[in-house]
Lab assay of single mutants.
Amino acid sequence: MSIQHFRVALIPFFAAFCLPVFAHPETLVKVKDAEDQLGARVGYIELDLNSGKILESFRPEERFPMMSTFKVLLCGAVLSRVDAGQEQLGRRIHYSQNDLVEYSPVTEKHLTDGMTVRELCSAAITMSDNTAANLLLTTIGGPKELTAFLHNMGDHVTRLDRWEPELNEAIPNDERDTTMPAAMATTLRKLLTGELLTLASRQQLIDWMEADKVAGPLLRSALPAGWFIADKSGAGERGSRGIIAALGPDGKPSRIVVIYTTGSQATMDERNRQIAEIGASLIKHW
């Protein structure tokens, strides 16, 4: 067993022997301040990774656009098919120029040779490549099948209805392509620590998230040296922004954090800054 596999296998073990965790309302004060600064709703939840206990939450059962955070769930569904012998990570998928959609920095470079399922998941999570996500959605049967996968996990809230990039439209009061912070946090925890996926697939999923290259201005910008984070960000229309993450000190994750916002007129930089400040408060009061 590799060191990384050992780390993920012992996530519940280490967490069980940690000192009790206590909620700190100071972080919620910052979440509410972010709402004021952005002029928009902000949803927040913080779960203990081992027990699933909610440590703090704000608007945990209000719907927010998922945006690209759905790509972690998508690759979880792909990995479940791999575990069941219905898919192979090494299978190569070929596609054409007509398949390319807006923001496809990886797939646009491989029109000639195609990409493997493993490479597509890596591109979808680490670079948020939209064509990679659409190609992977095709392998599982489309958005409705991802929703069905989530329902089978016990998540009857999260739903995907459309493809990239239309799913980022974020129309107010439109339930399409949305989740709730509580539902997303619980589902992410199941994917990373539950028995739904094999140990190898859980490790692969967290490795992809740990290698995320496009979430630097968010929670990662607030992390002290030595902290662990595996995350996936999302951005959408109407001032929408979000991030889902597993993080913790001492090089291992111990909490799940989900943050979503929508309806702001603020710039992307300002949305990023507010999420980073929430992260800084979380870490300060850990």
Rank of each mutant, 00 (worst) to 15 (best):
A34C: 01
S221I: 12
H156P: 06
M209S: 06
R238L: 07
S57Q: 10
S96T: 15
Q97C: 14
K53P: 09
T186N: 02
P143Q: 03
I275A: 12
L73E: 07
R162N: 12
K144Y: 10
V42L: 12
R176M: 15
G279M: 07
W208K: 03
T178R: 11
A77V: 00
H94Q: 14
I93C: 04
D161I: 03
S221V: 10
D177L: 09
P224H: 07
I93M: 12
T178D: 08
V72N: 12
Y103P: 02
D83L: 09
D33Q: 01
T112D: 01
E56L: 14
R159E: 01
K232D: 14
W208C: 04
S240T: 09
V31S: 05
T261E: 06
V117I: 03
L47Y: 06
A77L: 00
K252T: 08
E35W: 10
M67H: 12
I54P: 09
R159Y: 00
F228M: 01
G194C: 11
H24C: 09
E195P: 08
R59N: 13
Q265L: 11
K30P: 14
L150Q: 08
T178E: 14
L247D: 04
R91C: 14
Q203I: 04
Q86G: 08
R189N: 15
R238M: 05
K32E: 12
R202D: 05
L49S: 07
L188W: 12
L55W: 08
A40V: 10
V214T: 14
E195M: 00
S57K: 08
L219I: 08
L191R: 13
L73Y: 02
E195I: 02
D155Q: 06
E26I: 15
S233N: 09
L192A: 09
G76L: 13
I229D: 07
I45A: 00
F70W: 04
G142T: 07
W286N: 01
T131E: 07
T126L: 08
G216K: 15
P25R: 02
G194D: 14
T147D: 04
G279L: 05
P253A: 10
W286L: 05
I125E: 01
A148M: 00
A123K: 15
M184F: 10
L74F: 05
R189H: 13
L136G: 12
R238T: 07
G90I: 10
R159S: 00
R59Q: 03
H94K: 07
R202I: 05
G216C: 12
S128C: 01
H156V: 06
A215T: 05
T186H: 08
I243T: 09
R59V: 06
L47M: 11
C121I: 00
G52W: 06
I171V: 02
L160R: 04
V78G: 11
Q86E: 04
L218H: 13
V257C: 06
I278L: 11
E119T: 15
R176F: 09
Y260N: 12
P105W: 07
L100C: 08
L150K: 14
P172G: 11
W163H: 12
A185F: 02
K284F: 10
E145F: 11
K144L: 11
N130T: 15
D83V: 04
Y103F: 02
A183H: 06
F58S: 00
S281Q: 07
K144M: 08
R63D: 04
D174F: 02
N173I: 04
L282T: 11
K109W: 15
T126C: 03
E62Y: 00
L188R: 13
K252C: 03
I206W: 11
D250V: 03
V31R: 11
F149M: 10
Q274W: 11
T198Y: 13
M268I: 02
N173A: 10
D99Q: 11
D231Y: 13
E46L: 13
M180S: 07
R118S: 14
A123V: 15
V106S: 14
L135I: 12
R273G: 08
A84N: 08
T178W: 12
L150W: 15
V258C: 12
V29E: 03
S221H: 11
I93V: 01
N152T: 04
A200G: 14
E35P: 13
S240Y: 03
A123T: 15
T186V: 11
S68E: 00
E61Q: 06
R159P: 00
P217M: 09
R81L: 07
I54M: 11
T107S: 11
Q88W: 12
N152Q: 14
H156M: 07
A246H: 04
A235R: 03
R220L: 05
L146T: 07
E169F: 13
L49C: 09
D155V: 03
V214H: 15
L197T: 06
R81M: 01
K109C: 15
I275Y: 14
F70Y: 02
A215C: 07
N98C: 03
L74A: 14
L197Y: 06
E210Y: 15
E108Q: 00
F149T: 04
P60C: 05
A148D: 14
P143M: 01
I256Y: 03
K32Y: 08
L199G: 10
I93D: 01
R41S: 13
V31D: 05
T107C: 01
D269M: 05
N134D: 02
R59A: 03
D177R: 09
Y44F: 07
M115W: 15
G279F: 04
L111H: 03
R241G: 09
A245T: 11
T198P: 12
L218V: 10
A34Q: 06
C75A: 15
A276Y: 06
S57H: 14
K53Y: 06
I278M: 01
D48S: 15
T69P: 08
S281F: 01
M184V: 07
P65D: 08
E270N: 15
T261F: 07
R241C: 04
P181A: 06
D269Q: 13
D212K: 14
E62L: 00
W227Y: 09
D48N: 07
W286I: 04
Q265T: 11
W163N: 11
T27V: 01
S128Y: 01
P105T: 12
L55E: 14
A132Y: 07
W163V: 11
E35M: 08
H156C: 03
I256R: 01
P165W: 03
L188D: 14
R118G: 05
G52E: 01
I125H: 00
Q265A: 10
D83F: 03
L205W: 04
S80T: 07
T267K: 14
L79K: 15
N130P: 15
I206K: 14
I229H: 05
S51N: 02
R91L: 06
R176W: 11
D36I: 14
Y44V: 03
D155R: 07
G39T: 07
L199N: 08
P25V: 03
D231Q: 11
D174C: 04
S233W: 11
H151K: 13
N173S: 10
L49K: 05
D250F: 03
A40M: 14
R189L: 13
G43W: 02
P249Y: 11
T186A: 10
M180L: 07
D33K: 01
M66E: 01
N173G: 11
V101P: 08
F149D: 12
T126I: 14
S221K: 01
M153K: 14
C75G: 15
R255S: 06
H110P: 01
G226N: 07
W227G: 06
L28V: 15
L120P: 08
G194W: 10
E108G: 01
R271Y: 11
V257P: 01
A148F: 12
H110I: 14
